[in-house]
Each structure stands twice: as structure tokens, then as C-alpha cells.
């Protein structure tokens, strides 16, 4: 079984997680730029974070044979802080990177005018840089947030086939599917979405354009819930091909639209394994 986790915040995870992921068949991940829990206060801490998810984190992942790509954006929550917004001007530098396969996470948190502006501006950047867009849908006021996100996507002129709406659930999936966007589902330990509920949604809506992710981060989350979902699919009678489609080929197809997804060598980035100070305890 090969697993591609299309949304996971590895910056917040330990080397034990990497090891368990690698042992369970996770061979590629995409790390979207998002909130860090502690609010940032200026563009400098964003750029250091971006540098980390396009530099250090792919190096760390490579030592476990996992291919790491990133998405870059100003997240909706921090788009509300005027001290952070100047980072929008620095995004083009990062959106030009080989390892950046989408603009994201963009979208809504509290649906403020500042979020409207940042969302629209970054969809325009996705068009400029010929990148797909990863859209976070709000956890509160979800149905309204979804509708408004779909409206903004439509208005931007981006092809809905180049947009993924994430954190969907039973209530929001139908409208997203009708709009022609990719359907992202984040599987969490006890709230929001579980492997069994995910399987029921796959039964009802089919595996087309479905992306299953762990969205694991610094909160209560589990990087192996992609694997658990694959197992739940198999147990429910989905074919091996369906499982591969949802957990590997779909995310590959979505991010390959960037023209930058590189899975040619998932085990070797050219750095020496022997020189690996993470596995050996630091230098």
C-alpha cells in the first residue's frame, strides 16, 4: 500500500512520526503553510517558516524516504493581522519554487473583509503562477463558509478542477462536488471526520476527486489516519485499485497540475544517510 498525505504539517511532528509513517507506507506528503498556534507578528517569521517547509523539512522527510512538497500562502486567520499582511508581497518569490505545488492554505476563518481580500488576492497569485489552490473551509459556520468560498473561487476565474476544498464533511460535500472542485477530507482522532464516516461518504459520492488527509499538526491529530482510512476502505469491500486511487493517484493528479510534483525518487535526495544528524542525535 502506498500513501500520499496531501495535507499534513510535519513541522509540528517528531521523527518518531516520520518513522511510523514510512513503516506504514506513507511515501509522499504535502505540507501546506498554515497557522502555528502562536500568532505571528510580522513577515519575517513567515519567511523563516516558509524557508523551513521548503528547506529543512524536505531534508528531514528525505531521511525517512518520504518525498515532501509544500504549499505557500498567508493563512486566513493571520490575514486579519495588519502586521502580517505585508507577507503577501513576498509570496511571489516562494510561489516560484520547484517544491511548491499549490497556493494554500487560503480561504476563510471568520469571514472578515480582510479575509475576503487575502483570499481573492491569493487566488489571483495562483492564476499568475499556474498553481492549483488549496482552500481551507472554516470549522465554524461551515455551510455558509463553504458557499462563500465557492463564490470567491468562481469569481476569481480559476478552473474549479485546480481547486481543492478541504475539511469537508457530510453537510458540505454535495455543494463542493456540484461545483466541480476537488473534495478534501481531514480525518481526525475523535471529531470532525473519522475513517468509518469517510468510507460512508466514499460509498455515497464515489472516489472521484476525493483527497483524504490527516491534517496532522500541533493539535490532537494522528498522521496515520490516512492509513487507517485505507484499511477501513478495504474492510468495507473497496478494491485495492480504489484504495490506491484515493490514497495515492488522486493527490498525485491534483498536485501534478502544478507541473512541479517530483516523485521520481522518493528515497534519495542526494544527501548522505551517514551524515544524518537527526537519526544520530545532533551535531
Amino acid at each position: 500500500m502506498r500513501i500520499f498525505d496531501p495535507h499534513i504539517h510535519m513541522t509540528s511532528r517528531t521523527t518518531d512520526d516520520y518513522q511510523r509513517m514510512a513503516d506504514s507506507g506513507v511515501r509522499a506528503v504535502v505540507e501546506p503553510a498554515f497557522w502555528l498556534g502562536q500568532p505571528r507578528t510580522g513577515p519575517g517569521s513567515f519567511t523563516d517558516y516558509f524557508d523551513s517547509i521548503i528547506g529543512w523539512e524536505p531534508f528531514r522527510a528525505s531521511q525517512f524516504g518520504i518525498r515532501h512538497h509544500a504549499t505557500i500562502a498567508l493563512n486566513p486567520k493571520e490575514a486579519n493581522d495588519p502586521r502580517c499582511r505585508p507577507v503577501l508581497d513576498l509570496l511571489p518569490r516562494y510561489l516560484a519554487k520547484d517544491g511548491v505545488v499549490a497556493v494554500g492554505e487560503i480561504g476563510y476563518d471568520s469571514m472578515t473583509p480582510a479575509e475576503d481580500e487575502a483570499f481573492a488576492a491569493q487566488l489571483a497569485l495562483a492564476l499568475d503562477h499556474e498553481l492549483p489552490a488549496l482552500v481551507h473551509t472554516p470549522h465554524r459556520d461551515k455551510a455558509r463558509g463553504l458557499q462563500r468560498s465557492l463564490d470567491v473561487v468562481k469569481e476569481s476565474g480559476i478552473d474549479p478542477g485546480r481547486v481543492a476544498l478541504d475539511h469537508l464533511n457530510e453537510v458540505t460535500v454535495a455543494a463542493a462536488k456540484d461545483a466541480g472542485v476537488w473534495l478534501g477530507f481531514s480525518i481526525y482522532p475523535d471529531t470532525k471526520m473519522s475513517p468509518d464516516r469517510m468510507v460512508a461518504i466514499l460509498r455515497e459520492y464515489g472516489p472521484e476527486r476525493v483527497l483524504v488527509n490527516s491534517a496532522a499538526d500541533w493539535g490532537k491529530s494522528d498522521p496515520l489516519l490516512t492509513v487507517r482510512t485505507a484499511e477501513a476502505m478495504a474492510k468495507d469491500g473497496f478494491s485495492e485499485d480504489d484504495v490506491d486511487r484515493v490514497l495515492w493517484r488522486n493527490p498525485v493528479e491534483f498536485y501534478a497540475q502544478s507541473g512541479r510534483l517530483d516523485l521520481s525518487d522518493v528515497t534519495d535526495t542526494g544527501a548522505t544517510f551517514a551524515g544524518n544528524s537527526i537519526l544520530r542525535g545532533g551535531s
Partner: peptide
Amino acid sequence: RYGDTAEK
């Protein structure tokens, strides 16, 4: 300053 590893 703004480079990824290959750029650096």
C-alpha cells in the same frame, strides 16, 4: 536568503 536548498 529566499532560496530553497537547491537554490542555496
